[in-house]
């Protein structure tokens, strides 16, 4: 009998708690101020975007393939301006690439961490206004890819590496490098990547298809 009372009591408490919970529901969060914020942001961005599309009409040679690069807007010149400031960024990128070539998820992730550090250590004071804008645009996206590479399984890392490759090559086209690099092309993925060695070592499939691809361009 006592036990019955006890369990009835517990049930009553449970019921009361649920009622409290459902009352709380009515006090939904009205993030009006937040909504406002977003609207303003979007307007500002609209204007920026317009400027940008006027600046470079890019020719997407590789539409219709979902493997295609995310925003191919710049071509790297065969001889870029000699800029050592981008070295740490490129090193981080290459570390990811070499991790993926070796099917080593952890090393790729370490490269992602190194890349993120390189971005935060980058000295933006040397950029002019227009470079700065383009740099921010590229890096915002590249950081997101790097963050995913840090925390994802390897097939996911490779997906983000595709987008990252476009970002980094755009960055080199923008700012230059003093390194000698090779721009390689993967016909399976229909994307390019950058390498420090002339030999093809394909990061998108690792040991499965290590030598698939071709050198498109030697830089510097």
């Amino acid at each position: 009998m006592r036990k019955l009372k006890l369990s009835m009591g517990v049930l009553a408490i449970a019921f009361a708690a649920l009622t409290v919970m459902s009352c709380k529901d009515n006090k939904k969060e009205h993030d009006d101020s937040d909504g406002h914020h977003t609207e303003m942001d979007s307007e500002v961005n609209h204007m920026e975007m317009k400027n940008e599309s006027e600046e470079h009409h890019h020719e997407d040679a590789d539409d219709e393939h979902d493997g295609g690069s995310a925003a191919e807007s710049r071509d790297i010149k065969v001889s870029t301006q000699k800029n050592a400031a981008t070295s740490a960024i490129i090193d981080g990128y290459l570390q990811i690439k070499n991790g993926l070539v070796a099917d080593n998820k952890d090393n790729a992730a370490k490269g992602g961490t190194a890349l993120l550090a390189a971005f935060s250590n980058f000295d933006m004071s040397q950029l002019n206004e227009e470079q700065h804008k383009s740099y921010m645009d590229i890096v915002e996206d590249a950081k997101e890819q790097a963050e995913h590479i840090v925390k994802s399984p390897i097939d996911h890392q490779r997906e983000h590496f595709e987008t990252l490759s476009t970002d980094i090559s755009d960055l080199i086209a923008l700012l230059g490098t003093d390194k000698t690099l090779y721009q390689d092309y993967c016909p399976m993925k229909k994307v390019s990547w950058l390498s420090e060695t002339k030999d093809i070592k394909n990061p998108f499939f690792g040991s499965e298809m290590l030598t698939c691809g071709s050198v498109k361009k030697q830089i510097n």
């Binding site: 977003t38 942001d41 979007s42 961005n45 609209h46 920026e48 975007m49 940008e52 599309s53 979902d66 995310a70 925003a71 807007s73 645009d137 590229i138 915002e140 996206d141 997101e144 890819q145 997906e159 595709e162 987008t163 970002d167």
Partner: peptide
Amino acid sequence: NEWDTYSNRRKKSKLKS
């Protein structure tokens, strides 16, 4: 909800994902 606040570059990489 914040789609249009992303840059074109980010829109493309989001769409890809």
